[in-house]
């Protein structure tokens, strides 16, 4: 069943059209990868879904056609629909502590016990965060900030999590670790929409993928097929 359906989406920045009539869908339980070169429009799509950037045309349906059109939902109400976004460049709150950042991830949740339980889960998944819980987030290393951004998103117990280049700027070992964690998140039942430059890694954990070029989807299919596609190999896998 489609959890998220994007239909004929267009996005403009002033006169420039960054997204040109794009349609795709994300089914419950899937890991979907969105790959493409710099400036293809990947971040713009995620930002439009969570309301940080307005769309100029199209519909974004969440949980079936009779439910919400995300484009008409105020951005701050989207997270309580069960959608979390790990933004490009982490965007942790640098002056707040690790603990405070995580608490903000659960901002829309009311139940104190549930929040406490989520916090323990996140600390279990990222022990490093527990060690540094009193430290200002801005003083964490890049990899730790990425873990914090992911942990913060998990604090809202999302049904679907959007991740924008979680492996950016990380060492190869950490990249593998981050991808293992994404796999775990997916296995625990959360749907994942993953934007990545690291196409090889992304395709290796994704079910399906869309290839984006200058604001258009040029290719889509099963991730395993795309991994063997000649044009993908040449353009994105460097083979």
């Amino acid at each position: 069943m489609a959890l998220l359906t994007v239909k004929d989406l267009s996005v403009h920045y002033g006169m420039i059209q960054a997204i040109k009539n794009i349609s795709f869908e994300v089914n419950e339980g899937e890991v979907i990868a969105l790959i493409g070169a710099n400036g293809a429009g990947k971040t713009t799509i995620l930002h439009t879904i969570t309301g940080l950037v307005p769309a100029s045309a199209g519909v974004i349906e969440y949980e079936g056609p009779c439910n919400s059109n995300l484009l008409k939902t105020p951005p701050h109400e989207i997270v309580s629909l069960g959608m979390a976004h790990v933004p490009e460049g982490r965007r942790v709150f640098a002056e707040l502590t690790v603990y405070e950042n995580l608490k903000l991830g659960a901002y829309t949740r009311k139940d104190k016990n549930e929040i406490e339980e989520m916090l323990n889960n996140v600390y279990k998944r990222f022990p490093r965060l527990e060690e540094r819980k009193k430290q200002a987030a801005g003083t964490l290393s890049g990899g730790e900030q990425q873990m914090l951004a992911m942990g913060r998103a998990l604090m809202s117990c999302p049904k679907i999590i959007l991740m924008d280049e979680p492996s950016m700027g990380l060492s190869p070992i950490l990249v593998s670790e981050i991808f293992d964690i994404i796999k775990e998140i997916s296995e625990s039942g959360t749907t994942v929409l993953l934007v990545e430059q690291n196409a090889k890694k992304a395709l290796s954990i994704a079910d399906r993928a869309y290839v984006l070029e200058t604001g258009k989807i040029v290719l889509e299919g099963k991730a395993s097929d795309l991994l063997n596609d000649e044009s993908v190999k040449k353009a994105y896998l460097g083979e």
């Binding site: 969570t50 105020p74 997270v79 709150f93 903000l104 901002y107």
Partner: peptide
């Protein structure tokens, strides 16, 4: 307080604060 957290988050990054569900 929760509102205090929200104020600090908004002063740092309005977009990220919105992603947390904060009404800016």
């Amino acid at each position: 307080t929760k509102t205090g957290y929200a104020m600090r988050a908004v002063s740092e990054d309005k977009g990220a604060a919105q992603l947390m569900g904060i009404n800016v």
